[in-house]
């Protein structure tokens, strides 16, 4: 430094800087700090040699270890797959009923199914399968549109509902009001009757009963117990997906029915995952 001026009070050299008569003492970084700083720089040179560092016009310098975080991830995925394979091969080989009856397999499938459900199903059916009132069915109750046995659930997940998969669940409820199949008066009468059935107080001998027998029983069944083969829900309960079990709700559904659809998951997920999902959905409470 040009000016080696010493501060008379503290005995420390100044930096030579001066502002309004106030001088700055030269208090350098502690030596240990400086040493660590230089050590870090030297250490970083090792990084240049060993790891990918410098961008080039076509890519980057790979370093002598040829490290790649993507390759590491792939390696980990392979390892994980290998670790899971003993379970997955068992699940692949077994039927859903066999998995359900094997405690260890069932626990594995439940754990896997819970994750797969969260990733694929919860968007519509909600966490824990609560469903969305008016749109997507609740999977935790014991009322099913397309059946609640393990095989039924597996079939529904694999092929979906009302999509272009030839094996998908399919049916159409006629628009009794829109298409003029029933008059407004008749719809009111049958809706009153269905609401009475839902509340377990069937209005026997009402005009609605006759309309129901003529138009609805073919799908919804005697006593309105439903028919899973055509996705016709039971109407003798208060549990509904698309409407409320009131006269107005039923009338709306009869006039212009809402019907759900669901993708064919067999095209997106492997068989083992679908089996895990079936086991998990079956365990949500409604399994039959």
């Amino acid at each position: 430094m040009a000016s080696a001026e010493k501060d008379p009070i503290s005995g420390i050299y100044t930096t030579g800087h001066e502002w309004d008569g106030i001088k700055e003492l030269n208090t350098p970084m502690p030596r240990w700090w400086v040493y660590v700083f230089w050590a870090c720089i030297i250490w970083s040179i090792g990084y240049w040699v060993v790891y990918p560092t410098w961008p080039t016009t076509t890519g980057f310098t790979p370093g002598i270890w040829h490290y790649s975080s993507r390759e590491e991830l792939e390696k980990e995925l392979v390892n994980q797959k290998a670790a899971r394979s003993q379970w997955l091969s068992k699940i692949d080989a077994a039927s859903v009923e066999e998995i359900e009856n094997d405690k260890a397999l069932r626990n594995y499938a439940l754990a896997g199914g819970r994750i797969a459900f969260g990733e694929n199903c919860a968007a519509c059916h909600g966490t824990g399968g609560v469903g969305t009132p008016g749109a997507y069915p609740n999977l935790a109750d014991d009322v099913w549109l397309w059946g609640g046995t393990l095989a039924d659930i597996q079939q529904t997940i694999t092929h979906g509902v009302r999509n272009d998969d030839p094996d998908s669940r399919n049916s159409v409820m006629p628009s009794f009001g829109e298409d003029g199949l029933l008059t407004a008066e008749q719809i009111k009468q049958v809706a009153d009757y269905v609401a009475s059935v839902s509340h377990k107080t069937p209005a026997a001998g009402s005009p609605g009963e006759a309309i129901f027998a003529e138009n609805c029983v073919v799908c919804h069944g005697e006593g309105a117990v439903g028919n899973k083969d055509v996705g016709a829900p039971p109407l003798n309960t208060l549990v509904r997906t698309f409407t409320k079990p009131t006269s107005e709700g039923v009338a709306g559904q009869v006039t212009k029915p809402k019907m759900g659809s669901m993708p064919s998951w067999g095209r997106r997920l492997d068989k083992a995952t679908i089996k895990e999902l079936a086991i998990y959905v079956h365990s949500l409470g409604g399994g039959q």
Binding site: G128, V130, D142, V143, K200, P234, T237, L238
Partner: peptide, 12 residues
């Protein structure tokens, strides 16, 4: 279980 907190069954 928090989701669903409770479920009504077909029987009521």
């Amino acid at each position: 279980e928090r989701s669903p907190l409770y479920v009504q069954l077909g029987s009521g």
